[in-house]
Structures are given as C-alpha cells and as structure tokens.
C-alpha cells in the first residue's frame, strides 16, 4: 500500500532534515504504528503520503503509484483514497457531527441521496449515531475525535492515516479510539497511526516502525515501544 524508497525530506527554509534515507513497505490491510519523539519525522511521513510535500530524494509510492508524477486533479483524487485524522481533529465548528462527516462526501462529489445512509453508518461505527445533531463544542474531546474518524472513513478509503489521534485524550478515551481504529482495520482498511502513546502501543500490539531524527531505526513486526 505504501512504499518509501530511499526517501529523504529536507525543509528548504530551515534546512532541517526531517527524513533521512527511509526505506519501508506497508502492505495492504496492515495496522502499523509509527513511533518516535517529537521531531522524529512522523508528521513528515504523513505529509509525504498525503503529497503535501515532495521528498528531496527518493520516491514515495502509494498503491503502486509514484506520487511525484501527480499533478493538480490527480493529487485530489489521490487524497480521496486516504482518510486522515489529526490530533486537533480539525472539525468545522459551525457544522453538526453529521454535517462534518457529510462534508467529506460533499467535497468529493458523492451524490446527496447517498449521504444519510453513509453518514449514519460511519457514525454508528464510531458509536456516535445518537449525537449526529450535536455541534463539536457540545461533544467531549474523545467524541470529537470519533467524529473525525467517522469523517475520515465515510468515503471508505483503503488507507487511514492518524497523526497523534489520542494526543489530547485521557487514557480511557485513547483506548476507545484505538478500538475504533482496529475495527476500521478489520474491515480491510490499511491503518497507520503516528503516536508516542507508549501504553497504547504496548497494549494493542501491531507492527511498529520507530523513527529517530528522521531515520527508520526499528521495524518490529510484533510491536512494542522502544525508542
């Protein structure tokens, strides 16, 4: 699903080497943790997969396609195949839960007649169907994050990226979010979670990639947190 081939990423203004000669391969249907300290390169990894930035060296492949060749509309189509979850959830404050989820369908041109069923299904999967009319401000942090997950999966993308999805949550809510992500993975979606939540990585064991100062220093197929 995702392949990094000798990928380096240097930010031109600060001359910071965010990723340094990274090689990895994440297969379709896998659940993978990406761990490392702040600044280790986790968000840069996400940014490259989303094609928000291009590698200074090497090539990134998603579903076998090199992202460097994508232009304009193809980048948008590429992003439609990826669900993205952020630490700060990035819900639109003036829209209800259902409308936030439907927003993903609206911007990708899904016919309106399909919205209700798909939004309802996604909210059910994250256990929030009963709060579909609530605004983000009326939800707890954990609930907001679950709405963000529903928005990310409503288009049924084959790949789900989560950048510190439990960063703002208490341990109980964090575990709930991980369970939801595992459920999504069980439906066949490839899930990549960037995190430094040691207890979660230790509790819910999956393949774990460890980054340190931009280098991939460990690839443990059985999981476990070791920086």
């Amino acid at each position: 699903m995702i392949q990094f081939h000798h990928v380096s990423l240097e930010y031109p203004v600060t001359r910071t080497l965010a990723l340094d000669d990274v090689n990895l391969h994440i297969k379709k249907g896998e659940f993978v943790y990406l761990v490392g300290h702040s600044g280790a390169g986790k968000s840069s990894f996400m940014s490259l997969v989303l094609k928000r930035s291009l590698p200074s060296k090497g090539e990134v492949y998603v579903a076998g396609e090199p992202l460097r060749r994508f232009r304009g509309g193809r980048t948008a189509m590429h992003r439609r195949r990826i669900g993205m979850i952020f630490q700060d959830n990035q819900l639109l404050p003036h829209l209800s839960s259902a409308d936030n989820v439907a927003f993903a369908l609206r911007v990708t041109g899904v016919p309106r007649r399909e919205w209700d069923e798909r939004v309802s299904g996604a909210l059910k999967l994250v256990g929030l169907d009963h709060k579909k009319h609530a605004l983000p401000v009326q939800l707890s942090q954990g609930e907001q994050q679950r709405v963000a997950i529903a928005r990310a999966i409503v288009s049924e993308p084959p790949l789900l990226l989560a950048d510190e999805p439990t960063g703002n949550l208490d341990p109980e809510n964090s575990r709930d979010i991980l369970k939801v992500l595992q459920n999504v993975n069980l439906r066949g979606t490839t899930v990549v979670v960037a995190t430094h939540a040691r207890d979660l990585v230790e509790t819910f064991r999956h393949r774990t990639l460890t980054l340190r100062r931009g280098r991939l220093v460990r690839d443990d197929p059985y999981g476990g947190y070791a920086l």
Binding site: L50, G72, G73, A76, M77, H78, R79, R80, R81, I82, M84, Q90, L92, F103, A104, V107, T108, G109, R151, S155
Partner: peptide
C-alpha cells in the same frame, strides 16, 4: 483557511 485546509486533505479539487 481551516475549512479550505480540511477540504484539500479530504480530496476536494481546486475548482471545488
């Protein structure tokens, strides 16, 4: 800008 950023990440085209 927040909404535009979300749109871009969700795969909205530039035209949209």
């Amino acid at each position: 800008r927040a909404e535009i950023n979300v749109m871009r990440l969700l795969g909205a085209t530039r035209g949209f």
